[in-house]
Design a protein around this nucleic acid. Structure first.
Length: 571
RNA sequence: GCGCCCGUAGAUCAACUGGAUAGAUCGCAUGGCUACGAACCAUGAGGUUGGGGGUUCGAAUCCUCCCGGGCGUACCA
């Protein structure tokens, strides 16, 4: 917020000196080094050079024109022509005060709310959810929260894989090899067993393969029995998905699976053919692209057996979303291996519907690797089931809570362990750059020390602990903030940056920015907590410090909620 | 072959997209509980950012060439 004010004033000042300058890249950002100031602008150097001016001299002229007295001390020129802004304590105090009064929490909702569709999680029916699904689920949900916090309208949609060639194998397996007892114990495990069994049989028995095709065709033609089995498989799968989502506290506005679009697929292919976008090749229908990146990678919209494939389904899905919600942006959260598919899809959709104005955004993430450095694959090797992972997370957290706080009743320790364990798991996934691959490791994923959820939750419980000791009528709104201790000032300045970080999160779709921010906030709070007694302080100082604790607690809680983490008052 | 991504402290990761002395965490070393919760804090050691060349006031970041790794590359999604 303040940063944008400074930026606006700076751009005005530049324009008054250089009326036709492009000021869109004259940005203000936080200083990396507090000794230099609080915010800095460095783009003047380049601008001056391009106009053959002395950068330092130009910077001084800009300072002469800029009007930021309300917020800042004297603006300084440093180095080759940086501008350094240092906030006035009075301004920081005023901002904290208005936050205490509930006017804002260091962020402001967008004046132009956008509608955004976010597509995440998307598990496949009849396959257990495993570690590979967690990134998409957690990332997508967090992004939805962040957009909403900033005032945007979000529609989340779980595009589950409930249609496709795998059902031929599943139907055959279900009819010939189903173990009803196993199905009632763990439906997804049984369905997965059937799939693997038939999949293997197909490789060396052409009769099985024939039968599998036959079952698939019957399903596609609307055979009653096959449809019933298919529906049962979906129901059983969704039941287990919902259990996981409930444990992760993740939800969706819509769950429109692939099959929802079946009726539209033929129409899409026909339109693409009629308009000359798609053409026939070796019995299939494909689309060629002109762009350099895709020239050698045509997309297939209909297989040679006449069935549509996922490109077609995704086109129909996009059309439905555009018609239903008129979003300004559609975000797909999937792993990086699907980059080519989404490039094709986006280009193809724009050719098919040239008038659309949606921003199509593939937010991809890196692979999860096994301990051996090889990619985690569903088919080969062992899968770590999401359920198992969540159990392990809670169990580890329970052991630590029991060790650290044996005085707490077991029921409460269980609840704390749930919040801390699941939180640690989510935080581990969100705190890294989403595009990096990571090696799966129990210890790493469920670590409870260092830059992890427990560190942030612990800071929050210490704040709660202070307020538990207060009388209910204690005044929490000071007259002003002195911020005379360095730790108070550093904490206060960091609070002011909350909104900026959230903007960066939705701009880049990178929740790790928020993790970094909250980790730093907890760090500033810990330092403040060590050197600035709160309850022992007296008078105005006490009130001011209590208010700082309160604001820190609110920002921490809001930030953690945005990451999908619950908080706990004790741990 | 072509395309995309990656290589940063012993390990795991950051670095606000070209900014100032490359930062954290784990581990290691030292100090701090008769202190609002020590799941904490403070201090220290640890780097030729895979390598060479280039662009400029300034490069982990952009260009180029090597070395090493991952993924993708029309009938799975």
């Amino acid at each position: 917020m303040i940063q944008l004010n400074l930026q606006e004033q700076l751009q005005k000042a530049v324009l008054s000196l250089m009326p036709d300058a492009d000021v869109s890249k004259i940005l203000v950002r936080p200083c990396p080094e507090p000794n230099f100031g609080d915010y800095q602008a460095n783009a003047l150097i380049g601008l001056a050079k391009r106009n053959k001016l002395d950068p330092r001299e130009f910077a001084k002229q800009v300072i002469g024109k800029i009007d930021v007295d309300k917020f800042c001390e004297i603006v300084e020129v440093a180095g080759p022509g940086f501008l350094n802004f240092r906030l006035k304590t009075q301004f920081i105090s005023d901002t904290l005060l208005s936050a205490c009064k509930g006017d804002h929490l260091f962020l402001s909702a967008s004046e132009k709310p956008r509608t955004i569709v976010i597509d995440y999680s998307s598990p496949n029916v009849a396959k257990p959810m495993h570690v590979g699904h967690i990134r998409s689920t957690i990332l997508g949900y967090t992004l939805a929260k962040a957009f909403r916090l900033l005032g945007h309208k979000v529609i989340t949609d779980n595009h589950i894989g409930d249609w496709g060639t795998q059902f031929g194998k599943l139907l055959f397996g279900w009819k010939e090899h189903l173990d009803k007892n196993a199905l009632s114990i763990d439906a997804l495990a049984e369905m997965e067993r059937l799939y693997k069994l038939v999949n293997a049989a197909c490789d060396n028995d052409s009769k099985v393969l024939e039968r599998v095709r036959y079952e698939l065709v019957k399903l596609q033609d609307g055979d009653k029995e096959n449809l019933l089995i298919w529906k049962e498989m979906i129901d059983l799968s969704r039941h287990q998905f919902d259990e996981i989502y409930s444990r992760l506290r993740v939800d969706f506005d819509e769950t429109l699976g692939e099959s929802f679009y079946n009726d539209r697929l033929k129409g899409v292919v026909d339109e693409l053919s009629e308009s000359g976008i798609a053409e026939e090749s070796e019995g299939a229908k494909i689309v060629h692209f002109d762009s350099k990146a895709l020239r050698k990678h045509p997309a297939m919209v209909q297989k040679s057996d006449g069935a549509a494939n996922y490109t077609t389904t995704d086109l129909a899905t996009m059309e439905y979303r555009e018609n239903s919600w008129q979003p300004s942006e559609v975000i797909y959260v999937t792993d990086g291996r699907q980059q080519l598919h989404f490039q094709q899809l986006f280009e193809l959709y724009t050719r098919w519907q040239p008038e659309h104005e949606m921003k199509l955004n593939h937010v991809w993430f890196g692979a999860i690797l096994g301990e051996d450095g090889k990619p985690f694959k569903t088919r080969s090797g062992e899968i770590i089931r999401l359920n198992h992972l969540l159990n392990e997370a809670e169990q580890r957290a329970f052991e630590v809570v029991t060790e650290k706080s044996p005085g707490i009743e077991e029921d409460e320790r269980r609840e704390i362990a749930r919040v801390v364990g699941i939180g640690a798991l989510k935080y581990a996934d969100l705190s890294g750059n989403r595009q990096s691959d990571y090696v799966f490791s129990w210890d790493k994923m469920l670590s409870l020390v260092g830059n992890t959820a427990p560190y942030l939750l612990y800071a929050y419980t210490r704040i709660c602990s202070i307020f538990r000791k207060l009388d209910s009528d204690t005044i929490l709104i000071p007259k002003s903030f002195d911020l005379s201790d360095l730790e108070e000032l550093a904490l206060a300045k960091h609070l002011l940056r909350f909104g900026l970080v959230l903007e960066q999160v939705i701009e880049e779709c990178r929740p790790n920015f928020l993790c970094n921010y909250l980790f730093e906030l907890a760090g500033y709070y810990a330092s403040f907590y060590e050197s600035c007694p709160v309850l022992q302080a007296e008078g105005d100082v006490r009130t001011q410090r209590l208010a700082l604790c309160d604001l820190t607690g609110k920002v921490l809680k809001t930030g953690l909620e945005t990451l999908g983490l619950e908080t706990t008052e004790r741990m």
